[in-house]
Amino acid sequence: MSASTRSSRGLASPWLALPAVAFLLVLFVLPIGSFLVGSVLDPDFTLRNFQRLEASRAFWIVLQNTIRISVTVTLVCFLVGYPMALRIATLRPAIAAAILLVVVLSVWISLLVRNYAWMVLLGREGIVSSALVALGYAAERRSLLYNEFSVVLAMTHVLLPFMVIPVVAALRAIDPALVRAGASLGAGAGTVVRRVVFPLSLPGVATGTVLVFVLALGFYVTPAVLGGRGQMMLAMMMESEVNEQLAWGYAGAHAAVLLVVTLLIFTAYNRRFGVDRLWGGHGK
């Protein structure tokens, strides 16, 4: 990087970042900050909310559910989304754009509608259960709803675009010459993907996994509508505290613990995979 570009960047960047910083400050840092501060004030400093939380058996179970489901959804999104992104990135631009549009289109449909659609498909008298009986795989119709399977499936459906889009972007940024070079040096298609394409697409994978995981942590409607007792997630618990009991401080304590746990997981993930280095190195 030459000296002139560095100095021009240095001049421009603080001002360019201003709207974003102001936006985050007013709409993100302030409300979340005051919510979190509220968890230790009532009206004087107190740790009562956190003591109550520590003693609540339900909280720890629900926190486990939240993390377990979010990790599963992230993994499934990666396993389904990566091959999909690989295919999209190698298609002709017009077809790729059409397929990407279909992927994005699902984001435009109301979450509630997408969740209720699964209820229709997976219900006791739904098409899946009927098909299993008709094909002889099941003796009688049974519901496939209200368990971990239906929650993970519906959440993957909702969150898949957040994995596919950054991965496609990262794959497209790879210089095709590198792929050709790998092939010309005798690597088969599988080896090229494993040793050239995949490592170079890691920034997109990192973005996708973090996005999907963080969004999954806050899910409310899907586990509430498609889950059973074992799929209760933190947002459901906090909703009842905020909306019904007006116990905002207590709900704030939940949020604080979730935030800390998320940051711990992110730090561990970063140590292991060097996410910030990947992002920083993604200068193309």
């Binding site: 339900a58 209760m232 019904e244």
Partner: peptide, 10 residues
């Protein structure tokens, strides 16, 4: 509510 949450989650 607290008791319910404890009961239903287990």
């Amino acid at each position: 509510q607290q008791r319910w949450n404890d009961w239903i989650a287990v």
